[in-house]
Simulated assay, not measured.
Amino acid sequence: MDKLTFNDELLARQPARGIDVETTLAHFAIITCLIDPALLRPLIHPRFQLDLVEVDGQERALLSVVPFMDQDFRFVRFPWLKWRFGQTNYRVYVTDTQTGEHAAWFIGTSLDSWTVSIPRHLWKLPWHRARIHFDCNYDETARRYTRYRMQTTDSWADAEIELQDTGQPPTELTGFDDLQTGLVILTHPRKGFYYRRDGRLGTYQIWHDRLQTSAGKIDTARFSLLEEMGLVTSGVEPAIHSVLLQHQTEFTIYLPPH
């Protein structure tokens, strides 16, 4: 994998307008699992190659479970209308063979809000209604979570997560030649691709500033979706590559998707 950096082009922000969305995300976590590439390849459109790392002499693909709380989800055109809800994304890291760009392939999203019906039916996004509960405590002085728990129920992808937060930035990411390359791949995919609910290829674009994450550890990680898809062994916690935590960050989502 080529060396990647947080350059000006990567961090450049396209102005938001119209029905683009701006939102403050809290309790943002990136829990990345090591997955056998042969199991993931059939789920990915042929246009994309899996980004792989070598761990213990074996190539592995990277799949992240990304929970967070939308604090004030709002359309730029209607900023007085705001929604608050939990969300969890399931994404795989890929390279677009047409452009050479690194991107995220979305398997799907759980959303704790009735508004999920809008993107689900209007744009055929693979989003699903769920109940998502966060039980978190963030120590502002220590700049770390003293408690981070998240549970998703009544969903296509029930999950239970309990994390420890070191409060310290990551110093390395297994399988990457340098830390910054790993952080660009895992924390900064600006484009997302997915199979729409009608089977067609869909895409949308986001922006956020460079994340200032801390390194975390897993106490509990249960993801029913990964078990049901045969990506991890049932009843066994997945092999964890890394845990990255960010207390809060600003996101822009450019709509409509294409």
Rank of each mutant, 00 (worst) to 15 (best):
L43M: 10
E101C: 13
V66D: 02
F78C: 11
D96P: 01
G108P: 02
I107M: 10
E22C: 15
V53P: 00
Q98E: 13
P37M: 04
G100L: 12
G108S: 09
Q14N: 11
T99N: 09
D36L: 01
D51M: 11
G86H: 00
R13S: 08
P67K: 08
M69R: 02
Q14W: 09
N89E: 14
I31S: 09
L43T: 10
F106S: 00
R74A: 11
H102L: 06
A26T: 11
P79H: 09
D72A: 13
A104C: 07
M69H: 09
L63F: 04
V94T: 08
T88I: 07
G18T: 03
D96G: 14
T99K: 04
P46G: 11
W80N: 10
S110Q: 10
A26L: 10
L81K: 10
F85P: 00
R91C: 14
C33A: 11
M69V: 07
F75Q: 14
I19A: 13
P79A: 05
A16G: 01
T24F: 07
T23D: 11
T95M: 05
R60G: 11
P42L: 05
Q98L: 14
L40D: 06
R17Y: 12
L52F: 04
N89Y: 15
G18Y: 11
R41H: 15
E101G: 03
W83D: 06
L63C: 01
V76S: 01
E101P: 05
T23R: 03
Q14H: 12
F48A: 10
R47C: 15
P67D: 06
A38P: 08
D72P: 15
A29D: 06
I30T: 02
H102V: 07
A29S: 08
E54I: 14
I30N: 00
A38H: 13
R74I: 00
